[in-house]
Simulated assay, not measured.
Amino acid sequence: MNWPDIADALFGGASRYGDILALVSNSVWAGAVLGLVGGLIGVFVMQRDMAFAVHGISEMSFAGAALALLVGWDVVAGSIGGSLVAAAAIGLLGARARDRNSVIGVLMPFGLGLGILFLSLYSGRSANRFSLLTGQIVSVQSEQLGLLVVIGAIVLVALLLVWRPLRFDSLDPQAAAARGVPTTAISLGFMLLLGLVVAVAVHIIGALLVMALLVTPAAAAMRIASGPLAVPALAAAFGVVSAVGGILLAIAGSLPVSPYITTISFVVYLVCRAIGSRRGRVERARA
């Protein structure tokens, strides 16, 4: 191969990658917003032991998005509607952990069954159906990006406003109630915020794999940090790296975006778990 061919292979490939990156820039921005907000809210998901709820909400969000796809509505709006219905049901009916798990266990198969029904009735492109389950890097349009950014901003501002009482209620709900914290309102509000984030995640990574951005980054951060600021900061950073890194890798590959995002998130967790285990052994040896 001569030098002109080598130069064309290098710079031509970079140029094509840049063109594709420009095409999916909306998804990159949406992924960054999702990684940031998902990492932050994931800390409270872990503290409140609600990882199972994330999956339950995602199934109803999938059903709402599938219904919107079937009738020609906006898919993001449909997924938001399904998420909020599930979040409200879990928040109102699942005050106790046992009740909450029962409600989630009922909602999950119901939402998944509805979603499959709506998709089976949909006669459009099969790629649209597949993207609801596994995500699609070119699925975010400009107007949808604006809606996703607004949702992310609303959730972020709301989290900052209720951060202290939410953290108190997450770590010690009995003491929070005794101190006058409106635990019922806090729990319901958190569930609605979680529903909004899940709706965004379904549109980016798909209904089946939302836990990779709403649970795994926070779980990884908790393995290597414990401070009230360090854990959320690390969780948000891990979420952004997983989401944006997965989208950028998917541009150059032929697979859907979700395997890349989940792999990065899982590797980050394994590394943090190894670091946390090693640190624990060192501390025990010193003791």
Results as ranks from 00 to 15, higher is better:
Asp5His: 13
Gly18Asn: 01
Val28Asn: 05
Gly31Ala: 01
Leu36Gly: 04
Leu40Glu: 02
Gly42Ser: 00
Gln47Pro: 10
Phe52Arg: 05
Ala53Met: 10
Gly56Thr: 06
Ser58His: 05
Ser61Met: 02
Ser61Arg: 01
Phe62Pro: 00
Gly64Asp: 07
Ala68Gln: 02
Asp74Ile: 08
Ile80Asp: 00
Val85Tyr: 06
Val85Glu: 08
Gly91Glu: 08
Met108Asn: 08
Pro109Asp: 08
Gly111Asn: 02
Tyr122Phe: 12
Arg125Ser: 15
Arg129Phe: 13
Leu133Phe: 09
Thr134Ser: 15
Gly135Ala: 05
Gln136Pro: 11
Ile137Tyr: 11
Gln141Trp: 12
Glu143Ser: 15
Leu148Phe: 00
Leu148Gly: 05
Val150Lys: 07
Val155Trp: 01
Ala158Asn: 04
Val162Trp: 05
Leu166Ser: 05
Arg167Ser: 15
Leu171Arg: 08
Leu171Ala: 13
Asp172Gln: 11
Gly180Leu: 08
Ile186Asn: 11
Met191His: 10
Leu194Lys: 00
Met211Pro: 13
Leu213Asn: 05
Thr216Tyr: 06
Ala221Cys: 03
Ala225Lys: 01
Ser226Pro: 10
Ala230His: 04
Ala237Lys: 01
Ala237Thr: 03
Ala243Lys: 02
Ala243Pro: 04
Ala250Val: 02
Ala252Val: 10
Ser254Asn: 14
Ser254Glu: 15
Leu255Ser: 13
Ile261Val: 11
Val267Glu: 07
Val268Asp: 10
Leu270Ser: 10
Leu270Val: 10
Arg278Asn: 13
Arg286Gln: 14
Arg286Leu: 14
